[in-house]
Design a protein around this nucleic acid. Structure first.
Lengths: 328, 328
DNA sequence: AATATATCTGAATTGCTATTCAGATGATTG
DNA sequence: CAATCATCTGAATAGCAATTCAGATATATT
């Protein structure tokens, strides 16, 4: 089969376009080809290295903050993504996802089992994980379905799209995330199909999870928890949540009825997974992140600058509180 | 006055765009600015050298042919522009103009007087001559107006646009190119205004001229010469033309009535100008170019590959002819 | 403090580039 | 020597980038 364009032509086009700044339609005229082909020739020029574009190093991570976060919370790894003008909300999530993705990709094993949870921030990152060949990963849903619809930020969807790009296998937890009571949960977990997935989860090599704060809970938004439920959880000392597990300041699961109604990775499972990568964006996640870290549930944290700063500041304030308590 | 964008922001934007291939609208979102500003930041990045784009050398000139042409015709300088797929016509003219312009710009003096003639090819080159500050050039029209309209390829227009970019002065030859007879010409040349310009021409430091073939004459096209006139000229030995001067094989002006009816630089004027840069495109110009070169009228030749090849080949054939003549 | 001047900004627009599509072309196979 | 396949091609198009414009903002000047 004939193939590849002559170097001479590629260089001719590249020179006119990149050096002389002649537009593609004009280059096309001079080179006696269509504009479409000029565009293609330029792509070839870049691929072949005939055109080289280099950008002075830009450090997208706040290394100073990373160090502090890592040390204060005993994490293996912290990735603090710089955000333009301390962006918040969607913009910050996109930035953290963009910067975190290649780094997380490097952390994930190339074979074995990965547990994945849902969330907007996890989605931003997961969508940007580069596709790779030759990986034979099993991706497992870390928590049941939040409601009967599948949102594009649900673990179900993220896992599906991941294995589509990676070519592995995706195991779903075909259960709701929250069931009425302990008995219901146990009966679900007795199903052989579900049990098998549950065992995979228990032996996962890595996990990719989000961290939920007590404000703006996605569970409340989607109607599976009421604001009153959330209040009750707060009363019981909950400061945040991972995989449906509500945590107290120390990162222990709060002892509430919900504890037995969740079908999702529990605290002890997370603790023994060698690589738990948590993603969180925003200052309001600080308490929840701190709790998860303190409980040893997460090993790597991917976070934005505002979140990291709140995290570090919050740590200091919490140190003051015990001092207050001593006064009482 | 405030000025210049922070390096940090420029690098941030440049990295996203050039390394991560994120589109400008998306970069804009992440950087919290408008797409317009991203475009501007990228321009700054290129200007500051934060982004460097390098293209493997492309040699736009056919050095081998240049050498042959230079040697065979005793030229100071020959520029043979490579043309994609041996392009002809407009495309070849544009290519030669594009490649020749920066080289011609380097050859032209930065002060003094430059004579300029018209022509499609001259236009292609002149339009691409880079603007330069600090030059105090006087540009002089080398030949009268061909007809009463001013076409965009006429010396009048080219000179005007050149000094507009260069900031010099443009002197026009306010006469027709062809007048009815010698007496008319002499009377024109006696006008003090015209005489002054003529004297400038006579002392020009450089000239930029096209070369006309006996086919497809612009003069015939514009109705100042009839096809019969052209035939008569051919009968008198004319093989080409410079500034309205018809030349024989040896580059001497043909002795015809037209000789005294042209108001334009003559052969002796051209011969003594230190830098005469002639531009010609196309194989059909070969004889005319050869004649001009042989007559010592031009010092530098800018030409396309097809033209140069015809030139070289023609030279060989002309050598054969004298051999024939000996037989007679 | 008020004005003048220069620069900066994003919305709209224009013009350019990358991709999609349908058809052509040439290699490869039975 | 078809038939098949993969690639290549330019026209059309969808999407993207550079420029223009009018208004905003900051600095310098009086």
């Amino acid at each position: 089969m004939r193939h590849e364009y002559p170097d001479e032509q590629v260089r001719f086009v590249a020179k006119l376009y990149y050096i002389d700044h002649v537009s593609q339609p004009k280059v096309a005229r001079l080179a006696r080809v269509s504009q479409a082909k000029v565009s293609r020739l330029l792509a070839v020029a870049r691929k072949r290295g005939i055109v080289r574009i280099s950008v002075e190093d830009y450090e997208p991570r706040n290394r100073g903050l990373e160090q502090i976060v890592r040390d204060q919370f005993g994490l293996e790894n912290a990735i603090v993504a710089k955000t333009a003008g301390h962006a918040t909300g969607d913009v910050a999530r996109a930035t953290v996802g963009h910067i975190g993705a290649p780094l997380v990709s490097g952390l994930l094993p190339s074979s074995g089992t990965i547990a994945i949870a849902g969330g907007r921030t996890v989605k931003e990152l997961a969508d940007r994980l580069p596709g790779r060949d030759g990986r034979h990963l099993v991706v497992v849903q870390a928590m049941g379905g939040i409601d009967s619809s599948i949102s594009e930020v649900d673990a179900m969807e993220l896992g599906r799209s991941l294995v589509q790009r990676w070519g592995g296998r995706f195991l779903t937890l075909t259960t709701p995330a929250f069931v009425p009571d302990r008995a219901a949960r146990d009966s679900f977990l007795r199903f052989p199909q579900i049990q098998a997935v549950w065992r995979r989860l228990d032996q996962a090599d890595a996990a990719l999870v989000g961290i939920g704060a007590m404000s703006d809970s996605a569970f409340v938004e989607r109607g599976v928890l009421t604001p009153e439920d959330l209040d009750a959880l707060r009363q019981s000392g909950a400061v945040g949540e991972i995989c449906g597990r509500f945590l107290d300041h120390q990162g222990r699961e709060c002892d509430t009825p919900w504890k037995d109604r969740v079908i999702g990775m529990d605290v002890s499972m997370l603790r023994k997974i060698p690589k738990v990568i948590a993603i969180a964006v925003g200052a309001d996640k600080a308490q929840a992140v701190a709790a998860a870290a303190r409980g040893g549930l997460i090993k790597t944290l991917v976070i934005d600058e505002a979140g990291a700063e709140a995290l570090v500041a919050g740590k200091a304030s919490r140190r003051r509180r015990p001092a207050k308590n001593k006064k009482l």
